[in-house]
Structure formats: structure tokens, C-alpha cells
């Protein structure tokens, strides 16, 4: 069971209060019309699926209902960093940084 620290509520709460919102820092293409079908498909469906540190979004669904970013190890499940939406990751060693 994860205990996640919401950066807005500033409290560590059980994972049941949160909902997962997928990989973080996926930027919607500026001009979708300019993309090929393959590029658009990759934006929609292809994911880093990191084994190890992974940047992902969570929403505090049963709390403040706000989205934030989490850096979590997908093997040990250790939460390495929590930071608000809009903030750039501190480093991009995960391969799915901005």
C-alpha cells in the first residue's frame, strides 16, 4: 500500500484517497494537424513504461481533487519525489522527464 504525500494538502495519505492519472510530462503536440498518423498514435498510446524511477501523475480524488506529479520507483514502489503540476522535474534520468 502506497502512502502518498499530497503537495497541496501537505499530508501523507493512503493510496485509496488518490487516483492514478498516467505518465507525467507528456506534452500535447502544438499542432496536431501537422503530425502523421503514426506520430499522433505515438502521442496517444505509446508510453515509457519505465522499470525503475517513473514520473507519473496522481490526483487527490478524495481530498483536494488537484493533480500533481510523483517520481516513483516501479520496482521498489518507493516514492522519490512529489511536486506540483507545472513544475519541471529536477532531473531527467528517468527517460520520461520533460
Amino acid at each position: 500500500m502506497l502512502r502518498i504525500r499530497c503537495p497541496y494538502c501537505e499530508e501523507a495519505r493512503s493510496e485509496e484517497e488518490f487516483a492514478y492519472a498516467g505518465e507525467a510530462h507528456i506534452r500535447r503536440p502544438e499542432d496536431p494537424e501537422a503530425l502523421s498518423d503514426r506520430e499522433w498514435g505515438e502521442y496517444l498510446h505509446f508510453r515509457t513504461n519505465a522499470r525503475g524511477p517513473h514520473r507519473e501523475m496522481w490526483v487527490h480524488a478524495a481530498g483536494c481533487r488537484r493533480y500533481f506529479n510523483v517520481l516513483r520507483d516501479t520496482v521498489s514502489y518507493e516514492i522519490l519525489d512529489v511536486y506540483p503540476i507545472g513544475k519541471a522535474p529536477s532531473d531527467d534520468s528517468t527517460g520520461n522527464g520533460a
Binding site: L2, A19, T74, V75, S76, Y77
Partner: peptide, 10 residues
């Protein structure tokens, strides 16, 4: 509901 490679579940 979230990604993981640990062979145990939530």
C-alpha cells in the same frame, strides 16, 4: 491502478 513491476499487488 498504477504501473508496477514488483510481483506483488496493492
Amino acid at each position: 491502478v498504477y504501473n508496477g513491476y514488483g510481483q506483488r499487488g496493492s
